[in-house]
Design a protein around this nucleic acid. Structure first.
Lengths: 153, 153
DNA sequence: TCAATATAGGTCAAAAATGGTCAAAAGGTG
DNA sequence: CACCTTTTGACCATTTTTGACCTATATTGA
């Protein structure tokens, strides 16, 4: 029950785990492995390995070309800023990306992630004349500050 | 006599029983099974699987799309009553009481409680032009309903 | 050296695969 | 008949898959 894109995504994430967060592949090889067109690989990278999701993708064309995918470490204090962007505002999708990532990195349990998403994702946030993105940004900001406190259990 | 809608309803409920309260189907497949138009499925979901009736329905479009129906667990009358009794609008203090209570009753861990409070107590909620109490009430409502999901880990 | 060729990866838009919405038509019921 | 529920279908939105065409880099051989 998962699309090809999902399979490729988890394959890459598996490789990342095995290789301390850095993976270098040939687009063509990967496409062959999954018996798909090469541009499918780009689709996966564009939808699942964006900066907002905490990854850096670099590549080179020509002979000896490659695609390198780097998972930013959460220890890298830049990550949260990267995901949040310079803005204080945060879209629903980016909020979701951030929480999912924190779960993947085991900063939050799956349950905690679900709880946070339930609170943030509320369509009520979208309703009325409130600036949902600012609110979400502020809430996540407070949450992160709290989570990072030494004494936060 | 039972309408087509009734038959689809009981079919889904049967699946839910067989699958511990979670079912994922393709709308098109289900429609084929019952030889009806796909929108008939939506009709059934809208009239028989609402939150009020104890279900959550999630879906995704596009390739690999699906409809997921999750049954809420009404097994715990204490939690159910808490939800029923909850006010629509919730003050900051009452929100705090509610969360503390849920922690004491062990519906939530202490950490989960702290996370929720960090999100709810945020002074941003009190910003102008926002009906903080309604927002808090709505957020808590969504949270509590999610706590009832049978697939809530 | 340098042009030709081979070997990569990139872009973009169309097609395919799903599900959603809404209103009209059809069917029941008091 | 008046009213409510169910059934249908035309049209819309989202996500994934595919392919034709484009660009960049390395290698080769005059």
């Amino acid at each position: 029950m998962s699309t090809l894109a999902d399979q490729i995504e988890s394959y890459i994430k598996q490789l990342l785990s095995k290789n301390e967060g850095v993976v270098e592949v040939k687009r063509g090889d990967l496409a062959s492995t999954f018996m798909c067109v090469p541009s499918q690989i780009n689709y996966v990278l564009e939808t699942r390995f964006t900066t907002q999701q905490g990854y850096i993708v670099e590549s080179r064309r020509g002979g000896g070309g490659y695609i390198r995918i780097v998972r930013l470490s959460l220890a890298d204090p830049q990550l949260v800023n990267l995901i949040k962007g310079k803005e204080r505002r945060i879209s629903r999708q980016n909020g979701e990306f951030l929480i999912k990532r924190l779960v993947e990195e085991e900063f939050l349990t799956k349950r905690e992630g679900m709880i946070i998403l339930a609170l943030l994702d509320n369509s009520v946030l979208e309703a009325e004349h409130i600036d949902a993105e600012s609110l979400r940004g502020a809430m996540l900001n407070t949450l992160l500050i709290n989570l990072l406190r030494e004494d936060f259990i």
